[in-house]
Design a binder for these strands. Structure first.
Lengths: 157, 157
DNA sequence: GAATTCGGTCTCTTTTCGAGACTACTCTCG
DNA sequence: CGAGAGTAGTCTCGAAAAGAGACCGAATTC
């Protein structure tokens, strides 16, 4: 089971991707952000095989990204985004920005507008200190605490 | 081939994900952003099966995300990020932010620092008009030009 | 000229995926 | 009550994709 072991690496890009990186998971999340909560709604909107959907929803619940709620009034359960799941939104919007730029020859299919404003949601990468916009070229990686802990554990273990 | 057909949908989240959404592609890109350019380097760093890597690199080149460069001085070729590929960086950094927040109990393994500054790279979602920070709750979807063109094509076809 | 390196291919086994039938429970309506 | 519909979830089985690792050919090094 080599692939799953990647989740043990001290890398904050790799670890999420081991959970989220497959055909359907991000698409399921996209639907969740669009307000979808019922099993059949996910299934109909995406055309995902039912057993696959079952699997993915289960994994997302397991990781605390979705929360299973048994609706009060005898209705069927619902899958809702947790706080942790909600925090995934910038990832989807970053994907959207890229899609609009590079895969939408006819212009954006959907504008994601700011409520009560003419503007649109846009993802930016910036320095949290000086606020300057950044690209990959401006970034210098540097060991952080999680790496040291990991190295110590590896030495002991 | 139902899954690939998702790429035809007028959705700037779905379309990129059909290309990028699988086990390895984002991880390959992460390596590319870390400066990796050689086949064996990708393979060693990730532990990805060689045939799989071959496949993924090929697809990324096909989509103009990586560019195959035959090095001038008889050396082996290299895979480099195109402009289009380079534009994927915010997605990876958004994943990184989420990973740091939710999957790094010992703190971030790696800081992505702003060159010549004490700050760190951070992804933010904001309104491109008023500049205010946004979350999923502040977003209202609205039909854009790409959707209309799509609808017309569907009507004709 | 033997060994190595490198990118790449091939083969075979295992895993995952996809399609759709099937189950079980609830609700509704006559 | 009993038929029909809606919903969530399971099962089966053939197809596709992934994984491990051997193999190949060209260039490079020793």
């Amino acid at each position: 089971m080599r692939y799953e072991e990647l989740a043990d690496l001290p890398c904050s890009i790799t670890r999420p991707l081991v959970v989220l990186g497959d055909r359907w998971t991000f698409l399921v999340l996209k639907e969740a952000f669009a307000g979808v909560r019922r099993f059949n709604a996910f299934q109909n909107n995406l055309g995902i095989p039912r057993s696959r959907l079952q699997d993915r929803l289960g994994r997302l619940v397991e990781h605390g990204i979705l929360v299973r709620q048994q609706a009060a009034d005898g209705e069927h359960g619902e899958y809702r985004l947790s706080r942790k799941g909600h925090d995934l939104y910038p990832i989807l919007m970053a994907v959207k920005d890229w899609g609009d730029t590079h895969m939408a020859p006819d212009g954006p299919p959907v504008h994601y507008r700011h409520r009560d404003c003419t503007g649109e949601a846009r993802v930016t990468l910036a320095c949290d200190c000086c606020g300057e916009a950044m690209t990959a070229h401006d970034v210098v990686p540097e060991a952080g605490p999680g790496l040291l802990v990991h190295a110590e554990a590896a030495t002991r273990g």
